[in-house]
Structures are given as C-alpha cells and as structure tokens.
Amino acid sequence: MNERIVPRDAVTEFALRIAPQREIVGPTADRTGIRYDRIEGPFQLCLDAGHGVASPKGVLFPQTEVLFRFPSSEPNETIAEPRERVLFGIRPCDARALALLDRIFQSDGVEDPYFSARYAATTIVSLSCTEPGPACFCTSVGGGPADPAGSDLLLIGIGERLLARPVTQTGRELLESGGDLAQPAASEHVAAAVEAETQATAKIEPVEYPTDLARLAGIFHNTVWDEIAATCIGCGVCTYVCPTCHCFDITDEARRGRGRRVRSWDSCAFPSFTLHGSGRNPRERQAARLRQRILHKFLYGPERYGEALCVGCGRCITGCPTGIDLRSLLEAVTVIMNVEGA
C-alpha cells in the first residue's frame, strides 16, 4: 500500500519538507490544550494534547469572512487566489467533518465558492488517535481513531514512529516528497498500526443513537425535548466548537453607500436565529432549539446526505457550560423513540 515510516521526532521536518511552498496549519500548544495555527518552524507542532477546544473548521470556514466590499465588483480574495495549504496533524474526526462540510457546501447543485475554493486548495494530513478524549464517540457515528475518510495522507502513531498511509493521489505524491524521512514500511509496522488502532478503538465507549429516521421524526412533539433541554442556557458553545455545524448569517455593514458584506457563524441555539421581522419566533423555547440541533445532525442529515452530521469528537460535551452530554441526550431520545415513535 506504499506505506512509509516517519520518525516521530522528525515530524515537523517532514511537514516542512513535504509542503515547501505551502502554508502549513496544524495544532499548536495553547492554554486550553491546542489551537490550529500556522506552523513556520520547529517546536510549534503539538501533536499529543488532544484535538482542541475549537475544531479546525475555522481554517476553511472562518468565523467572520468579508465576502466583498462595495461599491466594487472585486471578488473576495479567497476566490481570486486561494492559498495552497496543508492542514497537518488534525484528527480523523475533523478530517471526516471537513469532507462532510464539503458535501453540504455543494449540495442541491449550489456551490459555496468561498468554502469550496479553500477546501480544494487544502491538502489534509491527519494523525490517528492513540489516546481518545473523555467524550469521544467517533466509532459510534461511522468514524474511528484511524479513519481515513477526508484525509489525503493518514499518519498512524506506533510508538516512536508514525506509519504514513496515503489515502489519495495527492497524499501519495506528498509522501514521495518526504525523501529519506519517509522510509518504506515493513510488515511489522503495518501490524503495529492495526494493533494501535484496535487498542484506541477499545478505549472509546460506544453510544446508542437514534437511527430509525421515521420513528425519530415521530417524536418531534414529545416532551423528551423539554426534559433534555431543562439545563440548556442557550449559549452557542456546542455549535461553535462543532466541526460540522455550518450555519451562518450575512450582514451588510454599510455607511453612505460604502461598506462590506460579512458572513459570520450563527447558531441555532440563539433565539435570534429564527426570530422573524414580525417579532414572532417559531422556536420560542430552548427545547425547540436544542431539538433542532439534534434533529439536524441525526434526522435531516441522514435524510439528505445518508449519514449523521456528527463525527463524535465530543467537543460539545466537554465545552457545555452546564454539563449537557450529547451522549446522554441521544440515549434518552433513543429510549423514548423506541417506546413512542410511530
């Protein structure tokens, strides 16, 4: 399978070598663990402190983005000349999430040119998880600690070495340019990678989530939503740290005919998300908003794209200020669905 072996202590050198002309973005040490930032030299990459409070989605789908300025017909700089980038060392769940976003941002025959241009110019080198976090449940939603989906090249940690497994043609070419830093892998390395994946998988607690879509739709009016939302305070942490949440708002900031059109993240957890100009709010209560978030991921997502819009990264769980645990919510909803859903 053209796999290679890269020494763990040479990983930054490897990253810089395979992407000499490109910007490298990867996990760097931060007070809350890691954050995704530009890598320009040694000692910056921080590969063993988890996947971070915030996901790398902001690299390709910035929280605030100026679409264009007016009066002017100049397109946004993203579209004019997308930067060639390597996203290095993100986790398989996040790589999978970016692939999902790519599908969403070009669904119904309408392409989001801003995201698409960035995604097309980005090469993804992901790193497998050997120590899953306390809220990880990727294995329950189709992923895994060494899931190749969405990656061009996958690095699997085996002790002091990394097994580099190309997933796409781009990944193969990237690995070729690693030169002597990427030696051919022996069968024992491949076996060790299988073992590492098995061990990591065993550490992840499975979660039961609703998969019977008709029955899930059937409990839309159930009181279970009120119960699970009782302690939801309506902040946007879960949606903003989520690697697949992608709702946005568009605002014109204008003064005397000059200004800019800005796209910024929005959140279904906020009352203003659905507030009509008339003053009516179809999602008046927090329970309706939380229901929307869960159904978008586990009902509308599967209906439209054939898969859940959740990669099981657990960020909404560890980030929730009042300790709401998506795993527990899904289990509670599943129980009710099995009893009540028609």
């Binding site: 929280q63 305070i233 902040c235 946007g236 903003y240 993240w265 906020f270 200020p321 009042t322």
Partner: peptide, 10 residues
C-alpha cells in the same frame, strides 16, 4: 473570543 456568549448565558 468566539462570541458563543457562554459567559453571558451562564
């Protein structure tokens, strides 16, 4: 800040 307003809602 990511403007999630967790500080405000908490």
């Amino acid at each position: 800040c990511i403007r999630c307003y967790a500080c405000r809602e908490a």
